[in-house]
Design a binder for these strands. Sequence first.
DNA 1: ATGTCC
Length: 472
Amino acid sequence: MASAKLTAKDLLTLGFPSGKPVTIALQLIDTYYTDLARNHQIELLQDVLTAPEQYKLQATLGPLAQAILTQKSSGPIELKPGKQKFAIYGGENIEGGALHQMELAMRLPIAQAGALMPDAHQGYGLPIGGVLATHNVAIPYGVGVDIGCRMCMSIYDIHTGFIDKNQDKLKKMLLDNTRFGHTSFKRPMNHPVMDRPEFSELPIVREMKDRAYQQLGTSGGGNHFVEFGTVEIHDVNNDHDLPKGKYLAILSHSGSRRLGANIAGYYTKVAMDACQLPPDAKHLAWLDLDTEAGQEYWLAMNLAGDYASACHHQIHERLANKLTEQPMAVIENHHNFAWKEKDATGKEVIVHRKGATPAGKGVMGIIPGSMATPGFIVRGKGEAASINSASHGAGRLMSRTEAKKTLSLPQVRKYLQKAGVDVLGSGLDEAPMVYKDINKVMASQQDLVEVVGTFHPKIVRMNGDEKYIEVD
DNA sequence: ATGTCC
């Protein structure tokens, strides 16, 4: 009898090409060879792998042999040789790994143009802070795991002193009306996005519907937050007729939760099966938008984006209800997404922004700093070289593990106290000092955006034990 | 980012 069941990982270790050969091999074992001892199962599969020609006409092992042969004969897609040009902003403070990933992405045969934002750092496939324009293909890892990760700010005609006078009340308001990480609301509010046909039509999305409903109106972990702060409007040209002045604002950062993560994971695998790239570029696998899988991904990605937007709107709605006020303006934008846009010559391109703020001419957006440094309301300048994009934040200076190793709670509490910021939840890995200087980052993208308003966080809620960083 | 391994 077989002992430990063979897994995909075992087969990859044996040198099976990922994708169809692995899938078929596991199916064959499950269907015909469950009685065979594990080592004999492995021997059998290895025989087919080393000499697929001898097995290709066999009834049972034929399909596996064929899949291996197809993979071998097609070979990986070739990358363009040499360095391709792309614009880099704030390059003196961008890590080598992110730069290398962007250089690699530019060599894809489907790459039309690219740019690297000043907050860039290494990710899977495209770097975070990477922008890539392609023609009629979508790269799931060019969008990222958290599809539709976005910012939303509501601005209230409430004087800023209200925050200091109502500290405890506002803290409780955040604790009662936001949920982070693995927690969710006992009774989620419904939202029209849950009635979208994609929830019944796309298999991978259908499986996620219950979880998506459960997570409606919640925020994620890591760098996600909901905070009260003050915003100063410097420029009346702001799309919302906001007069110059100081206002109370609520700012949120979150994405599409488990729904988007599963969509990203599933379609990345589909892409990697359909699009074989050299090993170091494999996470940049794409889906042709004329194929069924490509169209499915496009629909699912857009759904995840709308779902993420719905989550933010519910967060802001809950808080607006408690404040018994309606905002004067709401400014929001995705920063992990792909859009159909026109390039300078009028040709339609798919613009992937993985941790980048849309900054077309006149387009409003939000670029946050950290829990204790300013964030900015910006208006895009429509700079073609940046593919109408800007950074999505300050960018990390220190890894999470390094932060936990080198920083201490008293040190961070002192910093927050000095900055006059209250933090509920979070941890050392999100401390302000793990991020680049947001003012320098903004300075390096003056050609990309104009600053319309400056936001200062005052009461911040993030994932984790509410008492962890709390300074009071 | 994510109940972080198909």
